[in-house]
Each structure stands twice: as C-alpha cells, then as structure tokens.
Computed example of a mutant assay.
Amino acid sequence: MSAPAPLDVGIAGAGQLARMTCLAAWPLGLRVGVLGRPGEPAVAMAAGLVEGDWRDAEAVRALGAAAGVVTLENEFVDAGALAEVQAAGTPVRPDPAVLARVQDKALQKELLRGAGLPTAPFVVAGHARELAAAGRDLGWPLMLKSRRLGYDGYGNATCADEAEAVAAFARLDGGDGVLVEGMVAFANELAAMVARTPSGGVACYPVVETVQRDHVCHEVIAPAPVAPDALARAREVALAAADAAEGLGVTGVEMFLADGAVMVNELAPRPHNSGHYTIEACETSQFENHLRGVLDLPLGDVAMRAPAAAMVNLLGSTTGPARPDVRAALAVEGAHLHLYDKAEVRPGRKMGHVTALGATTGEALARARAAAAAAGL
C-alpha cells in the first residue's frame, strides 16, 4: 500500500471551525488534516487525522511533521509547542511569537493600545487587593476576564462591586492575575473578518452586527445596520487591528460602537463565529480565504452576493441525544442549514447555524430565525 499523500494544511483542533475549513478545501484540491479524536466534528470531513489533543505538545509536533503548513482552530494552542513546529521547518500561521501575545488577553490589550487602537479602559490586577483601586479608577461595574482560555463567556465575570470582583478573581486567576476592564455603554457590537497573506494580500469582509446574550453570540446581521461613517470607521479599525496582530489567514475582530466611536473588544486569530454567514453570503467564504491566506494564495472576493444576510446559531436548550428537525428547518424558504455533527446536546452548546439571504436585513433575519426555531434544538 502506498503512503498517504502529505497534508497541505494541518489544523490544530477538530471542532466545527475545522470542519467548515475542511469542507472549503476540497473544491480547491487541498488536503487539510486535523488534530483531534475520532467522532469530533471535523474528522469525517478531513483528508487526514493526527490523533491526539491540541493541548498535548507532542501531538502538535506530530501535526507539524504531517503538514506543509499548520494553522489553528482556536487561539489556545501552546505557543511554545507551535514555535517548535516552526523551528523544525513547518510554517505556523499565525506566527507563534505573535500568537503568544494575542492568546493572553492582557498582552493582547497592550498590543492593541501600543498600536494606537481604541479599547475599553483596562488594568491588569495581579492580586485581589488591587480590585478596589481598579473599581475607583474605572468605575463599577467591572468586567473581569481570565487572561487565557476564555471564550463564549467562559472566563468572564461582570462584577457590580468589590465583593463580587474578589469572588470572581478567585475563579479566574490563572496565577498571573486577571484583566480588568471598565464597562462600555455600547450601542452595538460589531465584528469584521480580515484575511491576510504572508506576501501582503489583505481583504476585509463586510462589518456585521453581532447579537450577544450572556457573552454568547446568538445572531449576526450583515451588513451591520449602523450609519455609513460608523461602518467605514469599523472597517479601518478592523484592518489596523489585524495588522497589529500580524494576522495570517483570517483574523476575527470584535468591536464596540459607543457614542459614534469604534473600539476593539477582542481578537481571534482564526475564522470566527461572526463570519459563518460568509459561506452563502459572500463570493468567498471566510474558511476558503483562511486557507488561501495561510498558503499565501491570492485572496478571493469578499463582496456580498445579496443586499443582506443573517446568521442564527443553533444553541442547545436541552440535554441528551441531538435530534434536529432537519425537514422542518429546510422547509423555510431561503434558509441554509449547517449542522456540526455533535451527537449530544447541552444547554448553550453550539450545534449548528442557519444562514439566510434577503433584500433587507429584516427579511434575512426573519428567515434565519424561523429555520432555527424549526430545527428544534
């Protein structure tokens, strides 16, 4: 038996983001493998599997040995292990040295501030006794964030007073303190995906509005229904933020719009939930452009195919086997259903998403909401 063909790209992770990236690879003739376990969402779609865990440095090194380029499904992969992969001759994109700063939320904020980009006011508290001063300086309530491994609200806490902040600090401190942010009275939460290549190619997707509940994205509206000057400023900020982070492939830039001003909330050095709508709504999806970016191929057109689009996440509401009502969801005209092949439902777990296009954002959102409700998860 002949040896398996080498992988063009290896993804550290095997969840739904890797799944959709693998699906985007096949039409381009690209072989994309994943680091994960049998049964994870991306494995059935991948051209190869390096069995293991992205938290295991040895497994990350094995992925590097099997692939021409290594990229990420999440920003939590150990930067030191990725640096070893790159030192052994396999490019890692984004670069591990920059990733080390982005994956630490405190260092990320300092990176953005150093680039002259607006953010919420923040300090790093190394001890719970520093929280009272932070509250006096930034004003209550405060947002406390773990410096690493926080996502979808995990690792965040909104604290109304010092007692709540001290309790949250005990949960969130990983040994090097926590990021403390002043609360922003924003009117809208915005996001944009920025694709970049090593040779200098750049493309910015339309700025979208994200609807968050309990720090979890529920809906995305494209383009964001805000004033044209705010859209233009958000695009400028997203491009500058991705440049500051030396993003390669796709970088997700989350932003706030407050009193007409745009500020950066957080960066994700990978495809992002707020860019899922691009599969149907844009000429080139974020997943295809992520692959083009990390392989230094020409980037695809990011223009929208319709005046408006909306994406609604399918979030679990019960616990047990996943039994989505596919027939009912597909009966909604104009809706596109994406299921992530997760066998078990848990409250709040992302089981899939629905995208719809429309002549207006209202029309697109109504279609997407109807299909999501019909899916019944």
Rank of each mutant, 00 (worst) to 15 (best):
V237R: 01
A238H: 04
L239I: 15
A241K: 00
D243E: 15
D243C: 02
A244H: 10
E246K: 15
G247Q: 15
G247L: 10
L248E: 15
L248S: 08
G249L: 13
G249H: 09
V250A: 01
V250G: 01
V250K: 05
G252W: 05
E254Y: 11
E254S: 10
F256C: 05
F256L: 03
F256N: 02
L257R: 13
L257P: 08
A258E: 15
A258D: 12
G260H: 11
G260V: 11
A261N: 05
A261T: 12
A261Q: 15
A261H: 13
M263H: 08
V264I: 14
N265A: 11
N265G: 09
L267N: 01
A268Q: 03
R270L: 10
R270H: 11
P271T: 14
H272E: 01
N273T: 05
G275M: 05
H276M: 02
H276F: 02
T278P: 10
E280A: 14
A281L: 08
A281M: 08
C282I: 13
C282N: 09
C282H: 08
C282V: 13
C282Q: 07
T284Y: 02
T284F: 02
T284E: 11
S285D: 05
Q286W: 07
F287R: 14
E288S: 12
E288P: 02
E288H: 03
H290W: 14
H290C: 12
H290A: 12
H290R: 08
L291H: 10
L291K: 05
L291A: 13
G293Q: 01
G293F: 03
V294Y: 01
L295N: 11
D296A: 07
L297V: 09
L297P: 07
L297G: 07
L299W: 09
G300V: 09
G300I: 09
G300R: 04
A303R: 15
A303E: 07
A303L: 04
M304D: 00
M304R: 11
R305A: 06
R305S: 03
A308D: 11
A308W: 04
A308C: 13
A309G: 10
A310C: 06
M311T: 07
V312Y: 04
V312S: 03
L314P: 07
L314Q: 08
L314H: 09
L314T: 03
L314F: 11
L314N: 07
G316N: 03
G316Y: 08
G316R: 01
T318D: 13
T318R: 15
T318C: 00
T318L: 06
T319P: 00
G320L: 10
G320M: 09
G320R: 03
R323L: 14
R323Y: 05
D325S: 13
D325I: 08
D325A: 14
V326D: 06
R327I: 10
R327Y: 01
